[in-house]
Amino acid sequence: MGAVDDSLAAMSEPDRSCLQRVVAIARGIAPDAEEGMSYGMPALKLDGKPLIGVVAAARHLSIFPFSPAVVDAVASRLEGHSLSKGTVRFTPDHPVPDDVVEEMVRLRRAEIRK
Rank of each mutant, 00 (worst) to 15 (best):
R106M: 03
A26R: 10
F90T: 14
V54K: 06
R21S: 12
S84L: 03
V4H: 00
A57V: 03
A58W: 05
V105F: 01
M1Q: 07
E111Y: 02
R27I: 13
L107E: 02
R89Q: 14
S38P: 10
P14F: 01
L78H: 01
R109L: 15
R27Y: 09
R16P: 14
L51G: 06
D15L: 11
V71W: 01
L51I: 13
A57T: 08
K45V: 03
G28W: 03
D32H: 13
R21V: 00
D15C: 12
V55I: 10
A69M: 08
I29A: 11
S38A: 15
D6S: 14
V105E: 06
I52C: 06
L44Q: 08
G86A: 15
V23Q: 04
R16E: 11
Y39T: 06
R59E: 09
E34T: 14
L8T: 07
M41I: 12
G2E: 07
A3E: 15
A33G: 06
A26I: 13
E34L: 14
P95K: 00
S67F: 03
P97I: 15
L51H: 11
E79L: 09
D5E: 13
P97G: 04
P14N: 00
S17E: 11
V100R: 13
R16K: 15
V22W: 02
S38V: 08
A26N: 11
V55F: 04
G40D: 11
A56M: 01
V55R: 14
S38K: 04
D5Y: 00
L78E: 05
F90H: 08
G40Y: 07
L8E: 00
D47S: 11
L19Y: 02
G48F: 07
R108S: 06
D6P: 08
S7K: 01
H60Y: 14
P50S: 06
A10K: 10
L8Q: 07
L19I: 09
V74L: 02
V74E: 08
A110P: 03
A10V: 00
I25Y: 05
I63T: 00
V4A: 02
K85T: 08
V96R: 08
L51Q: 11
D72S: 12
P97S: 05
D98Y: 04
P50D: 01
R59D: 13
G48Q: 05
K45H: 08
M11D: 06
E103A: 12
K49M: 08
F90M: 12
M41T: 11
S67Y: 09
L78S: 01
K114V: 12
K45D: 09
A75D: 05
M37H: 12
A57M: 09
G86R: 04
A9G: 04
F64E: 02
L107D: 02
E79D: 15
M11F: 12
H81E: 01
A43C: 10
P92T: 12
V100A: 13
S62E: 13
R77D: 15
